[in-house]
Nucleic acid binder design. Structure first.
Length: 231
DNA sequence: GCGACAG
DNA sequence: ATCTTGTCGC
């Protein structure tokens, strides 16, 4: 049961849920050493067909050391919430949890790290998708986004590994991190049970060849395929 | 009021 | 997110 009946239906209800859960985010780093052998990192992503009101989520488990796919799972359902900037979690989490639950059964164990497409702490109320999913699962979670959302950052050096603070005013809420020379940086933020430095280290470890982590690349390909095959 | 705005 | 061809470059 994923309790879609008690899922918020209005923006006001969603805001209240964020306000209530935000205090449960844990700052202490309980994530594994980046790239550690025997460690499992899970990539998560969602694809939509608004015309059919269908959502497809994918959860792909990778061996953090070899980046080989260990296991994968998908889930499809009805869109649970409209896209509202700042409330993305309410649109994506129901399907993501279903895919994660199925992945856990197939894996026979809990993942060591979750990698979300989007933000965690870098959020108007400091409680983006990665934070929300972290509180609900209790797992270490990081957010890796493709756009800076409403935040600003300074110049990021040209080399892989170079970064600049992602700022909300003067507060560092995440980091713009270059994973590939000559390519636009990604935007990393803390979700749950992980430090910002670790989140960046995990991102670099998971993205040796392309701009985005292998976890999200795999999840992106899988949820698109699941959506296509659901038609 | 208007525009910007993760996916 | 999604609608979409060719094209420049490694």
């Amino acid at each position: 049961m994923s309790g879609s009946q008690d899922w918020p239906r209005t923006e006001a209800e969603a805001l209240a849920v964020q306000d209530s859960l935000r205090t449960q985010v844990e700052e202490t780093d309980q994530s594994p050493a980046p790239g550690a052998a025997g460690t499992i990192a899970v990539g998560l992503d969602v694809a939509y067909d608004d015309a059919r009101d269908v959502v497809a989520a994918a959860a792909v488990a990778l061996d953090a050391a070899t980046l080989e796919v260990v296991e994968e799972a998908t889930a499809t359902g009805r869109v649970a919430f409209p896209y509202v900037p700042g409330l993305l979690a309410f649109r994506e989490i129901p399907a993501l949890r279903d895919a994660l639950d199925e992945l856990g059964r197939r894996l026979g164990r809990a993942p060591d790290l979750l990698v979300c497409d989007g933000y965690g702490r870098a959020h108007p109320r400091r409680f983006g998708l990665a934070s929300h999913l972290g509180v609900l699962t209790g797992l270490p979670v990081i957010g890796v986004a493709k756009n800076p959302f409403v935040f600003r950052h300074g110049v990021v050096g040209p080399d892989r590994g170079d970064s600049a603070a992602l700022l909300d005013g003067t507060e560092e809420v995440g980091r713009a991190l270059r994973t590939r020379r000559g390519v636009k940086p990604v935007f990393v933020s803390v979700g749950h049970r992980v430090s910002l430095d670790s989140a960046c280290a995990h991102t670099l470890s998971l993205a040796p060849d392309y701009r985005l982590p292998e976890t999200t690349r795999r999840a992106d390909a899988l949820c698109r395929r699941a959506l296509r095959e659901s038609a």
